[in-house]
C-alpha cells in the first residue's frame, strides 16, 4: 500500500512538474519576441550609441578613428550646446507652468454637471492632440508671421496691439510663440488626465463638506487638491519628459531660429547627425551630445520619480 501511494504521489509530482515545465516553456515562448526586439532595438542601439561617442566618424562605414573623450569635452565646452540646453529648460518650465494649472481649470469646468454639451467642448480641446506635430509647426509658422500673419492681423484689428509683433524674428517672442504652440498641442491630453483624476474623487466627501458648510473654493482647496496630488505629479512628469524631448515642433516651426533663440538640444544633435551644410555629419559628436543630454534627462526623471513614489505612497495609506 505504502509503495503504491508513493509511486502515485511521485507520478502526480512528475505530472505537476511537467505541467510546470510546460508552463515555464510557454512563458519563455511568450517573452521571446519581446526579448529579441528588446535586445536588438533597445539594448543594442544604446550600447552602440555609447560606443560611437568615442569616435570621430562621419557615419559612412564603421567608425575606426578612436579619439577618447574628445567629443564629450567638446560638447561640454560648446556654448551652443548650453544655449540649446537652456532653451530646452525654458521651454519645459514654461509648458509645465502654463499647462498644468490651466488644464485643471478646464477639466473642472468640463466635469461640472451644470455644463451642457460637455462632450462637444471636450472634443474641441482634444482636437490638436490628434494632429501631426510637424503639420502643426508648418501651420503655425504662417499664423505667427510678421507681415500677413493671421495672429498679428487679428490682434491689430481688435486693438490689443498697436504695432505688429515680430513673433518669429525676435528670440524672446519666438520662444513665447513656441511655448504657446506647445501648450496648444498638448493641452487636450492633460485635460483628459485631469478628468480621469476628477472622476476618482469620492462624491460623499463633498456631500459631507457641504453639510459642514464648506463653499466651492474651500471644497477645492481642502478636498479636491489634496486628492489630486498624485495626478499632479504624474501629469507634471509626462509633460516634462515630453517637453524635454521636443523635436518635430521646433524643426518645422522655427527650426531653432532666429539666431539660436529656440534651438533645443534634440535639434542641436540632429544638426550634427543629419545636416551637412559645410562638411560631413559628425555622428560621434552627435552621439556624445545625446548621451550627455540623456544623463540630464535621467537626473530630472529621477527627481520626479522620487516625487511620484512619495506621493504615490501617501495615496495608498
Amino acid at each position: 500500500m505504502e509503495v503504491v501511494s508513493t509511486a502515485k504521489r511521485s507520478a502526480k509530482k512528475k505530472h505537476i512538474s511537467t505541467i510546470r515545465r510546460r508552463e515555464v516553456m510557454w512563458c519563455y515562448i511568450f517573452l521571446f519576441p519581446q526579448l529579441v526586439i528588446y535586445l536588438a532595438f533597445t539594448l543594442w542601439p544604446i550600447i552602440a550609441s555609447y560606443y560611437f561617442g568615442f569616435f570621430n566618424w562621419n557615419g559612412t562605414g564603421w567608425p575606426t578613428h578612436f579619439i577618447g573623450f574628445q567629443n564629450f569635452v567638446e560638447v561640454l565646452q560648446d556654448s551652443y550646446f548650453w544655449g540649446a540646453f537652456k532653451n530646452s529648460f525654458i521651454y519645459t518650465i514654461g509648458l509645465v507652468v502654463i499647462v498644468v494649472p490651466t488644464s485643471l481649470i478646464v477639466a473642472i469646468i468640463l466635469n461640472s454637471p451644470k455644463l451642457k454639451f460637455a462632450t462637444f467642448f471636450r472634443s474641441m480641446f482634444f482636437l490638436p492632440v490628434v494632429l501631426t506635430m510637424a503639420i502643426v509647426g508648418i501651420i503655425m509658422k504662417n499664423i505667427f508671421a510678421f507681415e500677413g500673419g493671421f495672429l498679428n492681423e487679428v490682434l491689430l484689428n481688435i486693438g490689443v496691439i498697436q504695432e505688429p509683433i515680430n513673433w518669429l524674428g525676435n528670440t524672446a517672442f519666438a520662444m513665447v510663440a513656441l511655448i504657446l504652440v506647445g501648450v496648444w498641442k498638448g493641452f487636450g491630453i492633460k485635460v483628459i488626465y485631469w478628468l480621469a483624476g476628477l472622476q476618482t474623487l469620492p462624491k460623499d466627501l463633498y456631500e459631507a463638506a457641504r453639510v459642514d458648510g464648506a463653499g466651492i473654493v474651500q471644497q477645492f482647496i481642502y478636498i479636491t487638491l489634496p486628492l489630486l496630488i498624485p495626478f499632479l505629479v504624474v501629469i507634471t512628469f509626462f509633460q516634462t519628459v515630453w517637453a524635454f524631448n521636443v523635436f518635430d515642433l521646433v524643426k518645422t516651426f522655427t527650426n531653432g531660429g532666429p539666431y539660436f533663440g529656440t534651438d533645443v538640444v534634440p535639434l542641436y544633435i540632429y544638426r550634427y547627425a543629419f545636416e551637412i551644410e559645410g562638411g560631413f555629419p559628425r555622428m560621434g559628436f552627435a552621439s556624445a551630445a545625446g548621451i550627455i543630454y540623456g544623463f540630464a534627462t535621467m537626473i530630472i526623471s529621477i527627481i520626479l520619480g522620487i516625487l511620484v513614489r512619495k506621493f504615490g505612497s501617501t495615496k495608498t495609506t
Binding site: Y38, A40, F41, T42, L43, W44, P45, I46, A48, S49, Y50, F52, G53, G59, I269, A273, M283, A286, S287, A289, G290, I291, Y293, G294, F295, T297, M298, S301, I302, G305
Partner: peptide, 16 residues
C-alpha cells in the same frame, strides 16, 4: 530602459 540615458540611438537603429 526607462531610466538609462539612451544616447543618440537613431544611428545604430538605422544601421541595424
Amino acid at each position: 530602459t526607462m531610466f538609462i540615458p539612451a544616447g543618440y540611438t537613431i544611428i545604430p537603429l538605422w544601421q541595424l
